[in-house]
Nucleic acid binder design. Structure first.
Length: 227
DNA sequence: TCATTAACCCCAG
DNA sequence: CTGGGGTTAATGA
């Protein structure tokens, strides 16, 4: 499993010919980052483009009281970064690895020259950007309106859509190692409230929980949310 | 009324 | 011991 294999797994590059993949391989060194490492803070922000080849990153802000608020989680194949005004929404935030991660990066200059030669790549990036904006909007909406139960359910559905692994019995296992505290951080709630809601959802047979693991009936959960 | 705070508890590693 | 998870009375917007 060499570098090229990883690049071919990245959906953004699916439609690029092999020569382009090889060029990127030359330009973009890949490095391994240990779990629970801060790879970006508002202070250390640098322009450029980053691809996640393997692993998971958590993006979060810290409010004035020092509490974290998770904006989202990026996994294998996702991109982030900024070049001038072309923002993928990752400026001014903290980014931390949730597990060992393989990251590949292009500098601002490398990415700009690569982009101008390949307009189809710019189009794909535009799509990524607009999707991410829509998701932020939906997230803010449910955050302002819903009670804790809805916010937890919404979060679990979103995580299962992104990281869920279908099981034979109708449950999707969320392939992330998350404590109740981390779930609480993602929706701006207390750990205790999340624990209570999670146990309610277990009683309603919408989810199953284990230590640092959650399975969810995705279709049932979505029905609950639309009511 | 609903969620947070604070103070406990137990359990696994 | 530490960190995750569970519980509840008091408190507060």
């Amino acid at each position: 499993m060499n570098k090229l294999w990883y690049l071919s797994q990245i959906s953004m590059f699916d439609s690029l010919p092999l020569e382009d993949l090889m060029e990127i391989e030359r330009m973009a060194p890949m490095k391994t980052i240990q779990k629970h490492t801060l790879i970006q803070t508002p202070a250390t922000f640098r322009e450029g483009l980053y691809f996640i080849k393997k692993g998971k990153l958590r993006l979060y802000k810290i409010n004035s009281e020092g509490r974290q608020f998770t904006l989202g989680i990026l996994g294998e194949g996702n991109v982030f970064g900024e070049i001038d005004t072309f923002s993928l929404g990752t400026k001014g935030i903290y980014i931390e690895t949730m597990e060992e991660t393989l990251l590949c990066s292009l500098t601002k200059e490398e990415f700009e020259s690569f982009l101008t030669q390949r307009p189809q790549l710019a189009l794909k990036l535009l799509k990524v950007l607009s999707e991410r904006l829509l998701e932020r909007e939906a997230m803010l909406e449910q955050l302002a309106l819903g009670g804790i139960r809805d916010r937890v359910l919404h979060l679990l559905v979103k995580l299962a859509d992104q990281f869920g692994v279908e099981k034979a019995d109708g449950f999707s296992k969320i392939d992330l190692v998350l404590s109740h505290q981390e779930l609480a951080n993602m929706i701006g709630a207390s750990r205790e409230s999340v624990t209570v809601v999670l146990n309610e959802l277990v009683k309603q047979d919408l989810i199953r929980t284990g230590r640092m693991s959650i399975q969810i009936r995705l279709d049932e959960a979505k029905k609950e949310l639309s009511q």
